[in-house]
Amino acid sequence: MTIDHRAPPPPSGPVPWDKDFAQRLLADMLRTRRMEEKCAELYGAGKIRGFLHLYIGEEAVAAGALAALRAEDNVVATYREHGHALLRGMSMGAIMAEMYGKREGCARGRGGSMHLFDAQTRLFGGNAIVAGGLPLATGLGLAAQMLNEDRVTACFFGDGAVAEGAFHESLNLAALWKLPVLFCCENNLYGMGTAIERAEAQTDFCAKAASYAMPAQRVDGMDIVAVHEATQQAVQRVRGGGPMFLEYQTYRFRAHSMFDAELYRDKAEVEEWKTRGPIHTFTARLKSEGKLTEEAFLALDAAAQREVEDAVAFAEAGGWEPVADLLKDVHTS
């Protein structure tokens, strides 16, 4: 099977949401986008170091999917998780401070960009081993099942994870034990610089998931309406018992990380996908349906930018964890 790297046709059809909900999800994507644009700038300025993997272009997935979850559900994410952390409910300040390495960060400067954690919103990382989160999510599902808790675990991972043994072992276990886990594959067509058809003999990921006897569905990950509606239904199904697999077809507009010269893909391909950008296409749809005015859009965007400025100010004002506490939290006691 050869992969068509061309962007899908633009989303069409009415947005089945009221104005408030639609604008909230648009705001979620805007907040994520503005935050990450600032991160890139701060990386250039040397304020953020280490690896920085931006989610720019993929925002519809986190925004649409996370809005389908409840507060008591679990989320497991990857190293490209800034958006998931923010939209799960973490403060942008705690995220930004963590990227600065400050003590006000969510992990007190231990984790950085790739390891955002939040016990309060049940975000279990920020796992930077590809597919490392899948066994963990399976176990969280097992705990919910054994403790009789009505709790879905949404596990996000990229297309690269599908080649790992952990993917196959986890899907098998989750299906075998009928665990309430939603496997959310963010397929952006490249595992770092390797296109999926250069890494996978079978590029139909839904076929792989279905081989573990679980329902699997492909979703246009550039269309927040499709993402949210499909995830909503999937979550309901998972809550009723048994795992499910969703493949969100999406695209990363920026480099894999800040060290990537992007030798592996055509600029034209990137440009074409950008025309399908989840924010501007959704904005246009809402405007055409009378659910958003230009003034309202500008207000949402301005609010997002203010939030970013406040987060940066919070991180800048933060302190450094004392070196005397270097060995803290290796063990509980």
Partner: peptide
């Protein structure tokens, strides 16, 4: 898979 599931179950 099952050692990782043990980790998740412990976290849960």
């Amino acid at each position: 898979g099952f050692v990782g599931a043990g980790i998740g179950a412990a976290l849960g």
